[in-house]
């Protein structure tokens, strides 16, 4: 097989770009699920973040303002979910699905007149010295700030749950909300906050999609990225660094198969397009099969509504 036309270092660099929207959304969902809430509306929050950021960028000319609005947009949609599931105690699965449909519909309504426009470019941030390293510099240190942020955020979430009291409290609420309540923690408030943070992450991921990865607005442009993010959280067994690996594998294989398709390889296109999903799931299943169980299980209160005492 001739891969000569595909430059490996560039491929690796762009796989990070391809993976970042999913990584961001999945990281947000990880935090949410750790507190015991299952928000299936990731897709809806992402695409609303995408259009909110896109419109803001077009109107102001600044991608930074765009990203801010992506974050706010994602959180705003998440707010509806939080209100419905935490305050009015609606079923999380149904509310999440509704959120996805709502987000998709609302974004195509808002984005109607924005199709086909190109947003202001978001410049890369070449890190001095490090970006000069041959190969590695191209792969890792010539990206835009959002990518650096996403990697730092993975580390931050990892340490949050490992070393910080706040992380422990979030985990406790997700493990057993009755016990957490009995100890005096405000389950509803903690979950409400986590849902907003999760929405902000998903919105940012969506914004990255419409402002950097593509970059333009098309209806339904998330194309299932939110669902991939949801699946990644489960397959990564709620561990941030596995999420990173999973997202990058997914991004990598997506790009690779696109390149292979372009090369005109004699493999069925349908097979190639399903390969990212299969490879990602395969790798993550393999990783979780090797470790002892227990630490890999879902939060015990996941998806359950807290009714108080």
């Amino acid at each position: 097989m001739d891969l000569g036309d595909i430059k490996i270092s560039l491929l690796l660099a762009s796989l990070i770009v391809a993976a970042t929207p999913i990584l961001l959304a999945a990281l947000g969902e990880l935090i949410v699920e750790k507190t015991g809430v299952l928000n299936l509306g990731v897709e809806g929050m992402m695409i609303f973040g995408a259009i909110a950021g896109f419109i803001a960028t077009i109107e102001t000319g600044s991608p930074w303002v765009g990203f801010l609005f992506s974050i706010l947009g994602g959180a705003a949609i998440a707010f509806i979910f939080a209100l419905v599931t935490q305050i009015f105690r609606a079923n999380q699965v149904a509310s999440g699905l509704a959120l996805t449909l709502f987000g998709l519909g609302l974004s195509s309504l808002l984005g109607h007149s924005y199709t086909g426009i190109k947003p202001a470019a978001f410049s890369d941030l070449h890190i001095p010295i490090l970006s000069e390293i041959p190969i590695l510099g191209v792969i890792l240190f010539q990206h835009d700030p959002i990518i650096y942020f996403s990697i730092l955020a993975v580390a931050a979430v990892y340490f949050l749950f490992r070393n910080f009291r706040l992380g422990l409290i979030l985990k406790a609420v997700g493990e057993n909300h009755d016990s957490a309540h009995a100890l005096g923690y405000n389950v509803i408030l903690i979950r409400f906050g986590a849902i907003l943070v999760g929405g902000a992450f998903a919105g940012l991921g969506g914004g990255y999609l419409s402002l950097v990865r593509v970059p333009q607005w098309t209806e339904g442009m998330t194309a299932g990225a939110g669902w991939i993010a949801l699946a990644l959280v489960v397959f990564a067994s709620w561990q941030p660094f596995r999420l990173l690996i999973g997202a990058y594998i997914f991004g990598g294989v997506t790009l690779l198969q696109l390149n292979l398709q372009a090369l005109g390889l004699e493999i069925n296109v349908a097979l190639l397009s399903m390969s990212p999903y299969l490879v990602t799931i395969g790798v993550l299943v393999f990783m979780s099969a090797r470790r002892s169980r227990g630490s890999l299980e879902a939060p015990r209160s996941l998806g359950k509504t807290f009714f108080g005492l």
């Binding site: 406790a172 057993n176 009755d178 009995a182 923690y185």
Partner: peptide
């Protein structure tokens, strides 16, 4: 001290105490 213990099964003993 509760009747149905207010503990978190998936966490270790230290974490359970720290939460209180």
């Amino acid at each position: 001290v509760f009747q149905h213990f207010s503990l978190f099964d998936a966490l270790n003993v230290f974490e359970n105490i720290a939460l209180g």
